[in-house]
Design a protein around this nucleic acid. Structure first.
Lengths: 237, 237
DNA sequence: CGTCGCGTTGACGTAGCTCAACCTACGTGG
DNA sequence: CCACGTAGGTTGAGCTACGTCAACGCGACG
């Protein structure tokens, strides 16, 4: 799996310098509170990328010098366990930041892999830190992002890896449904579900089948519409 | 379980205003980078507490307006699962901050309970935010603290709740050993171990017995000296 | 002295892991 | 065009690690 950094120059979809001032989703992005003059400064060193599915933005242990802002698509943060199996720690969607740890450390803590085709900006850590010092409102945004990551980690622990397999899958589907933007819901393979829920892929598959049998999940290999009420009933357990 | 806030005025061990300038463990604390003039400002609204074991500093959902700096002792952050069982999300030791979420939200996300007698300072969120705006070095400290919480959550997911029971307990014991300060290692009940590792208390007990049988863990109900090499061999699996 | 909380150990049932077979969809190359 | 290989999904069969329930011992404490 090529890392983004290594394939950057070769990537035919590299879109060049970002135009932050006219970014269509600026309101969504963490940089909303910045002024035009700040954006001019930020504009300089920002790289704008489009990457296909299954590409890693960075890998665990790699030198970390930049934050990635996800403008479109979904990304998973993965860590390899001692026994070699992968574990998904967080899911990112448009508007989220990946690699915040580059602001305080010199290595990425996880591997970030696109779940869908994605657009993203790479912003040098030094630029982010400089803006944070200058703009209190932006500093607050960074605090909030860190807290959101923490909330997601806690949610994974308390809701997605406790209880029986059926409940876990039900809660994951509800969560994915909430993560969805403009009608698009990220589609996870059974293996990715298993890597989030700490189950085997077979058990995840069986749980999905059971949910379909109970009418809580549409057909289309679990990609169909889901019955939130039915899932919530199962998720409660 | 009375919350600290409710029992503050009644607490016979309330030590009055903190004297940050002469704090013996200032170097350890997050406020190390602050200047004397900053400390004078911070001094005003800081409360200094001594609390016994088993007291909650704040509870999940409570209005959050202050950060707690732990000066001595250990604290667990707990969340109650849907089925009513408690789950421990993080452990804090001297020098750590509890309730960082008060800087970005208006409610505490967890319940914080002392595992040992503890000394702590309560610092209004507004004061922390003001200092963060003024001192970039202090802002960096907050970033680091948030990242440390995140690292601990990720470690819980990847190392403490994966693999079999014996390996989980072995990794927990190693982790507690590393958490220890000046010869003191936090002592956890079987129930607390279970609440961290996502096991039943009986399974945690059986795993500890097995470790003692194998000589990786001293007697004294698992409080004795531990054989790091032996534990690391088991933790690898 | 009785009670309560905690730790230990045993017996038993079961949820989920593992291994395996099978199917479909998809891509590749002749 | 078909033949083939591969990756993902589904389902079954068997095993096992862990949860549950229960009994018992111990120390703390009133």
């Amino acid at each position: 799996m090529a890392t983004l950094t290594h394939s950057r120059c070769l990537d035919p979809h590299w879109a060049g310098r970002a135009d932050c001032r006219h970014c269509k989703i600026r309101a969504l992005m963490p940089f909303a509170p910045l002024e035009a003059e700040d954006l001019d400064q930020i504009l300089l060193p920002v790289e704008d990328f489009r990457v296909p599915e299954g590409v890693s933005l960075f890998e665990s242990g790699m030198p970390a010098a930049a934050v990635f802002a996800l403008r479109r698509g979904y990304v998973k943060l993965v860590e390899t366990l001692a026994d070699g199996r992968p574990r998904i720690l967080r899911l990112l969607r448009a508007g989220d930041l990946a690699g915040l740890e580059s602001l305080v450390g010199d290595a990425y803590r996880h591997t970030a892999i696109t779940l869908t085709p994605a657009n993203l900006c790479e912003i040098p850590a030094a630029v982010v830190l400089q803006l944070a010092e200058r703009r209190p409102a932006f500093q607050r945004v960074l605090f909030e992002r860190w807290q959101e990551s923490l909330d997601q980690a806690d949610r994974l622990i308390t809701r997605l890896t406790s209880g029986d397999a059926l409940g876990r899958v039900a809660r994951l589907l509800l969560y994915l449904d909430e993560l969805g933007q403009d009608g698009q819901v990220p589609r996870l393979s059974r293996q990715d579900m298993a890597a989030i829920l700490d189950l085997s892929a077979e058990t995840a598959s069986r749980a999905c089948s059971e949910l379909m049998r109970r009418g809580a999940l549409g057909e289309m290999q679990g990609c169909g519409p889901l019955d939130r009420a039915a899932l919530e009933a199962l998720a409660g357990s």
